[in-house]
Nucleic acid binder design. Structure first.
Length: 885
DNA sequence: TCTCGGGTG
DNA sequence: AAGTGCACCCGAGAT
């Protein structure tokens, strides 16, 4: 049998793979954030080809760069193409790695395209008696088809190919493969951007080639054509046609430094390939290699379950050891969601039901509440709140799949169990979307078999992932973070959410009426100034009025039109009185929609309270976030907005609101982490940190008065440093020249050299390890730290330095919250923790307990962790959240 | 469903 | 050659 030669057009296949999978681009990223869709697609193609074709020699050819002999001939060759997306460019080096790991060779040659390498080797193969298969996404290569060379062109996707033999070309086009060159010379190629002869397309080109055989012969016999527009074009464009023929011709004698002897196919290099799959996060490929067949068969075995009813509850008593439990609440808001069913099981037996009421009965209730029986769950906080609604107090949560997964990698968190399982290479559970559908069609399946299987699979996934995830946490030194902080915090948060905060709806409604009146006034003023009525809330219509009708200067543009953001409007305020009105309108409209009607919508009628949900597994830094509604952004800065806080009141008469906040916690963490002696000294001396910073960076004497403006600027510099600000940004922020801003920053680094060193070291750490850490080993991966794109890389560098600061501050208050809850319980106080706003804790308590809190809360908060600078806590108290003093 | 604008720390 | 301070949530309009 003849030897076989495989030649692959690397660039075109990678392009095809990338765009074929483009709609799933975000699904295909590895843990470092590298996009992998094209790499994945390339491997699919390779497997598909190697399934049927067993080469003795194999090569993947790549383009060496933009410049080739063709571009030298014809400037615009391949001109006008869109820039290759960064998400694709970054994948090329890895495709080469893959190629090598698969035992194929790769090659590129300066000044030549991949096509020419393939053409040359195909010819060599022909002469040496090989059967050759060329795989490409580019139909141009079909010109290389011959008796012993087949060209497979990808069709749809990357594995669906069309095989071009001379017979197939003949059948499709009616010409020989070599005549494709003549055809292209006449018709041109829009993707390679060469023109061909005016007005000649594929049909006419084929007709002419059939008639004359070649471009050269056509021009030798051009006189035989009768007079026509086409003939005129042919005559006029003769030079172009001849040049295009050269451009279209794939070389078969490129000066390659390699030959067939150098590209022997080595077969799969197992070890390299496994390492590569691991790096890329290609779990399905890995699974195919690693798992023994019987093991796979076992894993995919359907799950067996028993339906629980009031009559067979005793089955629960047969369960042994740790229990896996999952209460299904189809709505995201577990404070109000209906209950769809539950599953409980020990890893061998799975008991399911649609009737959550069963949980109220023993032995189920007893087991769930037993501190002696460990429970494994997904999203413990949701389970605690849901069960609390059924009168059950879930105790002893050991494993929370969602929480553990979040700590391992904040990037791939999802609220969907199936999705999270997938991230950990576990395929035996479907996602909710797959089983329940999405959008309007989402529903719990009526079919018991379908629903119960899904429930049982979820519980089994929790059970199966417990050990491996605990192992990973341990490897990352994150077990204490998980066990001592996040899991206990879950209970604290659940209690805060369940408690809720009382909101006086009437207060909000009264404010709303006043705002409505004021809005109407401002609205009419705006319409008068504009000379017409329009929707002020529409940035598009507003932009039209300001920048077209009133011809105000355009300061900034957005992707979709004129920017009308505050900083823009402020610059325009002195040019037209309407601008001030618009700013006023915006402010009030925001209060009205988000804070008056928005909050009124979420007051529970049963208790006049708002029950937010804290998301514990969302932010990239370890902070909490708050939704439905967000109680972490209730207005405070502007006096009008601040009034909203009057509606937040204690839940009992004779009680008060009490609040303590860390002062400058992030800067203190900065002083601690950087070890900067000057910064630490300033804090230890108990100085006004912004004033002392002003003294240092503006080179003022120690006893100098710091005026408000200097302090303001120094404060902006302090915050800017933490966020990784540029001189440009700082200049914008504090209204100084860029040169001045630059000087401030330079001075800062001179005065606080430890901070400068920390920034450099942290970025270096991120580059080396791919992640950064907080003081509790909370981790954030920063794949973009290696990005080619300047802005993406810069962003990653700023987050590298900011995340340990912001994240450590988050760690500190989390610890304080856990300890505070314990103290309240131990001292049998009636006080309750209500809100956490990043550096602030809000409580309600009977008036007589306030003196206790005044001492206790700051004490707990400032001793939560021991930093090498003191933590400072300030407290306030009042009858409403507004009145805190 | 996306974009803009704006509220918080 | 381009962009320019971190972390969030949500309402309204446009599509």
């Amino acid at each position: 049998m003849a030897k076989q030669l495989l030649l692959i057009d690397g660039n075109s296949i990678v392009f095809r793979a990338f765009f074929a999978m483009h709609n799933q681009i975000d699904k295909f990223t590895n843990k470092d954030g590298l996009h992998t869709a094209a790499i994945y697609g390339f491997k699919l193609m390779l497997d598909h080809v190697l399934d049927q074709f067993h080469p003795d020699a194999a090569l993947v050819a790549f383009d060496a760069g933009k410049v080739t002999f063709r571009t030298k001939m014809y400037d615009d060759y391949k001109g006008g193409r869109n820039k290759t997306p960064d998400e694709l460019t970054e994948q090329f080096p890895y495709v080469r790695e893959l190629v090598e790991a698969c035992g194929l060779h790769s090659y590129e040659l300066k000044n030549y395209e991949a096509d020419d390498i393939i053409g040359t080797l195909a010819k060599e193969g022909d002469e040496a008696g090989y059967e050759t298969l060329i795989v490409t996404g580019d139909r141009d290569l079909t010109q290389l088809a011959s008796d012993h060379t087949t060209v497979a062109v990808t069709h749809k996707g990357v594995t669906d190919t069309e095989h071009y033999t001379p017979a197939h070309v003949e059948e499709k086009l009616g010409i020989t493969p070599r005549q494709i060159i003549d055809m292209k010379a006449l018709m041109g190629d829009s993707s390679d951007n060469y023109p061909g002869v005016t007005k000649i397309g594929e049909k006419t080109a084929i007709k002419l080639v059939k008639q004359f055989g070649s471009v050269e012969n056509l021009y030798d016999h051009i006189d035989e054509l009768k007079k026509s527009k086409m003939k005129e074009h042919l005559v006029e464009d003769e030079a172009i046609a001849r040049e295009c023929k050269t451009l279209a011709t794939i070389l078969q004698d490129a000066p390659l430094e390699i030959g067939l002897d150098d590209i022997t196919y080595r077969g799969e290099q197992t070890e390299e390939l496994v390492a590569f799959y691991q790096q890329m996060g290609f779990k399905s490929f890995l699974a195919k290699m690693d798992l023994a067949p019987e093991e796979k068969a076992d894993k995919s075995a359907p799950v067996e379950y028993t339906e629980l009813t009031a009559d067979n509850l005793a089955a629960v008593d047969q369960l042994e050891g740790e229990l896996n439990f999952y209460l299904e609440m189809p709505d995201a808001n577990y404070h109000t969601s209906p209950f769809a069913g539950f599953v409980i099981g020990d890893g061998k037996t799975w008991l399911v039901s649609r009737d959550a009421e069963l949980l109220k009965q023993d032995p189920l209730k007893k087991l769930l509440e037993s501190p002696a029986v460990a429970k494994n769950v997904f999203n413990a906080k949701a389970q605690i709140v849901g069960l609390h609604r059924l009168g059950i107090d879930l105790r002893n949560v050991d494993f929370d799949l969602l929480l553990a997964s979040y700590l391992l990698n904040t990037n791939d968190n999802s609220n969907d169990l199936g999705q999270v399982a997938l991230e950990h290479d576990y395929h035996e559970v479907a996602t909710d979307e797959e089983v329940y559908g999405k959008g309007a069609k989402r529903a719990i399946p009526a079919d018991d078999q379908v629903f119960y299987t899904h429930l049982a699979q979820k519980a089994r996934a929790i059970d199966d992932l417990r050990a491996p995830l605990f192992k990973k946490l341990d490897d990352n030194q994150q077990t204490p973070l998980y066990t001592d902080i996040e899991v206990p915090l879950t209970r604290v948060l659940a209690a805060m959410e369940i408690t809720g905060i009382k909101v006086n709806a009437q207060t909000l409604k009264d404010m709303g009426s006043k705002l409505t009146e004021r809005l109407a006034d401002i609205e009419s003023q705006i319409y008068a100034a504009a000379g017409e009525e329009f929707n002020i809330n529409s940035t598009k219509q507003l932009g039209h009025i300001l920048f077209e009708k009133l011809k105000l200067p355009v300061i900034k543009k957005t992707k979709t039109g004129y920017s009308t953001a505050v900083d823009v409007l402020e610059k325009l305020a002195d040019q037209a009185p309407i601008v001030e009105d618009i700013l006023q309108y915006r402010q009030i409209a925001k209060l009205q929609s988000t804070y008056i009607t928005g909050l009124l919508k979420v007051i529970h009628s049963s208790d006049q309270k708002i029950h937010t949900r804290y998301l514990q597994t969302l932010t990239q830094t370890g902070r909490l976030s708050s939704v439905d509604p967000n109680l972490q952004n209730i207005p405070v800065r502007l006096p009008e907005g601040r009034l909203i806080r009057k509606a937040f009141v204690p839940s009992h008469a004779g009680w008060q609101i009490f609040s303590s906040d860390y002062s400058q916690v992030e800067l203190r963490v900065l002083a601690h982490i950087t070890g900067d002696k000057n910064l630490q000294e300033d804090f230890k001396n108990g100085e006004d940190i912004h004033a002392s910073t002003a003294r240092r960076i503006f080179h003022l004497p120690a006893d100098a008065e710091i005026d408000r403006n200097m302090r303001r600027r120094a404060k902006a510099v302090n915050f800017g440093i933490v966020y990784g600000i540029s001189d440009y940004g700082l200049a914008q922020r504090i209204h100084v020249s860029r040169a001045q801003a630059h000087e401030f920053i330079q001075n800062y680094f001179k005065e606080f050299p430890g901070v400068k060193k920390y920034i450099d070291d942290t970025i270096a750490f991120a580059r080396e390890h791919g992640y950064v850490e907080t003081i509790t080993h909370r981790r954030r991966y920063l794949p973009d730290i290696h990005a080619k794109s300047f802005s993406r890389r810069s962003f990653a560098e700023r987050t590298a330095m900011n995340t340990p600061i912001q994240g450590s501050a988050a760690d500190i208050i989390k610890i304080a919250m856990i300890r505070m809850k314990e103290e309240i319980k131990q001292r049998q106080l009636q006080a309750r923790m209500l809100l956490q706003i990043h550096d602030e804790l809000v409580f309600e308590a009977p008036a007589e307990e306030i003196p206790v809190l005044q001492k206790l809360v700051p004490q707990v908060m400032d001793s939560a962790v021991q930093l090498n600078v003191p933590l400072k806590v300030e407290s306030k108290v009042g009858d409403t959240w507004y009145d805190l003093k």
